[in-house]
Design a protein around this nucleic acid. Structure first.
Lengths: 213, 213
DNA sequence: CAATTGTCTTGACGATCGTCAAGAGTTTGT
DNA sequence: ACAAACTCTTGACGATCGTCAAGACAATTG
């Protein structure tokens, strides 16, 4: 039944596995359509049409639609969780970190809005489709770590301690990000400058009082 | 073509419009299935099956699926935006308001999780389906006002001013709420007590320094 | 070079979807 | 009580979906 995908992988011959290469290429193509139409509306045929492949190839490399979608989003998020690492590493003052962080948040909405829409779509669908939950939970945890690295470094540069738990920081910033993404759609950059303003206002409230150690 | 819905309404005979009554009944039934399966997976036949009506009636009272869904969610949210009014009106101290607010947030997740899942589903789908945006934006604005009433009253009781704009308060609290809803699914009340803890920790950070007027 | 394995194309299947239309049943108005 | 308007049932339509299978084509292996 699901013998397809299993059957091909057991040939660990190639040093760089050609099988996984194709899966990555398919994922990259699929992300275009998925980001544009969302999870429910993006059919496998449409995904294949917007790619150099045919719809049969999709089922050759992926057992079903869910496997393709999960693989694709994982493929994207794997790169995306390092987006703010440069902000963390290169900022030398707390204010600079805030500025660079806010700018990068706005930038990624501007440049990769469809990907973020897809992510929130998938996360929401995971509330209805149990098979999505494991992958979503894992990605969510990585995003939370990503935010925590930013806040921790920010606190460090400010000479203070983070006032709230990692999950709280992530939840609040993610909420702001999501509203900005929602408002961004009608092609108004106002939502982005507003997001930057909001981040500037919020970040200081995430710190505890100056430490006395 | 769309003569159905238009044709029936022009009989403003009844004092309480029987037409709108049926629409409300259909909405109430539809919310059950929509909340359980989500927007994409809930077919009109399934919605009708979980109701005292047949699937033809749905198209008699609603032009298409979108009109039904929008009407249903509006129907629900109209009641839901007043959920915290009692918290605002009856709390006499800032701490009491926080406790009642946190308890009510957890309570509504516990009692109406499917409805909230549906709302976030619809809001996410609005990023892909332009026809949903107007209704979603309007509901979102009402929710923001709802949160703003809570925060304003909280600040008043604390003798301080809200430190952040209404949109920021809403975005952050909505982010926390959404994560709690997401984590609630595996039937763990941990997510709810955790949400209450988070709210208790966050609320004070939403206020500016004590006023000196 | 022959043969096995891997890769891909093509076309079809059953299922399900939103929508619609014809007509039966019911209520309302006169 | 008759006719008109409203309400609802039933069944069908075209379209589209995920999935699968048979076979062509290409690559690799012995």
């Amino acid at each position: 039944m699901t013998g397809q995908t299993e059957g091909k992988r057991r040939r660990a011959v190639r040093p760089v596995d050609k099988f996984d290469e194709r899966r990555d290429q398919l994922a990259e193509s699929a992300l275009l359509t998925l980001g544009e139409l969302g999870y429910a509306r993006a059919s496998l045929r449409e995904i294949a049409n917007n790619s150099p492949f045919t719809h049969g190839v999709v089922h050759y490399y992926f057992a079903d639609k869910l496997e393709l979608v999960i693989y694709s989003v994982r493929y994207y998020k794997a790169r995306c969780v390092t987006r703010y690492d440069s902000v963390v590493q290169e900022s030398t003052t707390a204010d600079e970190l805030i500025e660079r962080f806010a700018a990068r948040l706005a930038q990624t909405i501007h440049e990769e809005a469809p990907m973020h829409r897809l992510w929130y779509d998938l996360r929401t669908q995971s509330m209805f489709e149990p098979e999505l939950r494991e992958a979503v939970a894992q990605i969510d945890a990585e995003l939370q770590n990503m935010i925590w690295r930013v806040v921790s470094r920010y606190a460090e540069l400010a000479g203070r301690e983070p006032a709230l738990a990692p999950a709280v920081n992530y939840g609040m910033l993610d909420g702001l990000f999501q509203l900005a993404l929602l408002a961004y759609h009608p092609a108004g950059d106002d939502a982005l400058t507003q997001l930057a303003d909001e981040v500037r206002a919020v970040m200081p409230t995430l710190l505890a009082a100056p430490r006395s150690t």
